[in-house]
Design a binder for these strands. Structure first.
Lengths: 230, 230
DNA sequence: AATCTGCGGGCTGGATCCAATAACACGGCA
DNA sequence: TGCCGTGTTATTGGATCCAGCCCGCAGATT
């Protein structure tokens, strides 16, 4: 959803303001690695690219800054936020903690429709995996996790978890192809859904924790390796 | 009377931009109950009050919206966010979860200087309590908690917890005087600090959990009562 | 009398314009 | 030759201006 494919407003009933649309688009481009960590975002350039004035860009920047994707300094502009390995570590611990809680509360509430919806996303996710469509896989990956948590009915927690996921996602996408955990994750997703169907909270949560930890460890070691040769 | 005691730029080395200063000031006024839930914030009025144009106000709004303190609709402006009891419940469960983790990791890292700093804040907190200075008590209350968590060295988690606290704080302030839990909280703070000094992680975390739960229950029932007679 | 409709005021969203700051390069001086 | 001060330029921050959307009100029509 949210397509992100750049402001195609046709038939979309644009009930969102231009700054929001811009923020969506820029966020997607950052996640895609289109803008790399440390790279600076120039208001005027983006304004021209999107054929609008600098003002919507500025407001979009505020949103992205609040999400932790960019950092801005007064009179010095915005740069894409970097992520030290230590920070990634912390964010993954947060994920383990919060997503466990969400899943635990979600499973008892899951309806058949919920499970079918997750199944649907998982299918697409598997397809993206086979096609090696990294960006699509990345966004579907979160979509799948999210679909499992929605029945928990915890919008605040879900919003926070979504923010954390967005922050780490772009690094995940960068290392997807070279990671073996990528393949394991694929199988774990399927198993996770089966545990949910069986209403096996214990097994599901345990698997989820391991699933996130593995991804985190893989990412952290990758970041540390990168910071060495940098 | 508007005093404008945010934004006193003299001697403040304003290394922050005007929108940020505005956001700080507005946030404080929302927390103080100066702006009540549901009340709408008008760009022009605020711009005139702060003697600036509407643009910084708009950017400040984006920040406050990201923090969940206001909600904005396109072409309809910004209103102070309300908080259903259900949402308060969830936020307090988040606090229990996240602050426990923070304290648990913080205690082993606490230096004597850290403990002294917390002691200092606690003194001021107690003073504010005796003087029934609600707003000051509210901000010092968070300051005290925060001082206990800082040694955990988890900036991401701390930032999230701070956001959660800000969201609920204004409701806490509204009911402070009529709440007996307010008095209990005062004693618990002291006990909490003593447990930290003794490096008694178990006892400290247990007390913290109870401390937050009590506050949460008290707030939730207060909100439910309020929503009934509304 | 009630509802629909057209109009106007007030407010927000976005564009353009001006001021201020910071990076950079050039030239002077030791 | 190397360093420091100054002027230039690119870019951001803030103000003002214009267009478009909500909403309330008045008048007309059934």
């Amino acid at each position: 959803m949210k397509s992100g494919m750049g402001l195609t407003k046709s038939h979309s009933l644009k009930r969102q303001s231009l700054p929001e649309a811009l923020a969506d688009s820029l966020r997607e481009r950052i996640l895609n690695g289109d803008f790399k960590p440390g790279e600076s975002l120039v208001q005027e350039a983006l304004a021209e690219e999107y054929e609008c004035s600098r003002m919507p860009v500025r407001e979009a920047f505020r949103q992205l800054e609040a999400a932790g994707l960019i950092v801005t300094k007064v009179h010095k502009g915005a740069v894409v936020a970097a992520m030290p390995a230590e920070q990634a570590q912390e964010l993954y611990e947060l994920r383990v903690n919060l997503e466990s809680v969400l899943l635990e509360h979600a499973i008892p509430n899951m309806t058949d429709a919920d499970l079918d919806a997750s199944e649907q996303v998982l299918r697409e996710l598997e397809k993206a995996y086979e096609e090696r469509d990294i960006n699509r896989w990345g966004s579907l990956n979160w979509e799948f996790h999210r679909s499992l948590y929605v029945p928990a009915n915890r919008t605040q927690t879900l919003a926070i978890v979504q923010g954390v996921n967005l922050q780490v996602e772009r690094y995940v996408r960068l290392q997807l192809l070279i990671s073996e955990t990528f393949e394991a994750a694929q199988k774990e997703h399927r198993a996770l859904l089966e545990y949910c169907r069986a209403r096996n909270v214990e097994a599901a949560v345990a698997l989820l924790k391991q699933h996130i930890r593995d991804a985190g460890d893989s990412l952290v070691s990758s970041l540390e390796a990168r910071s060495v040769d940098a």
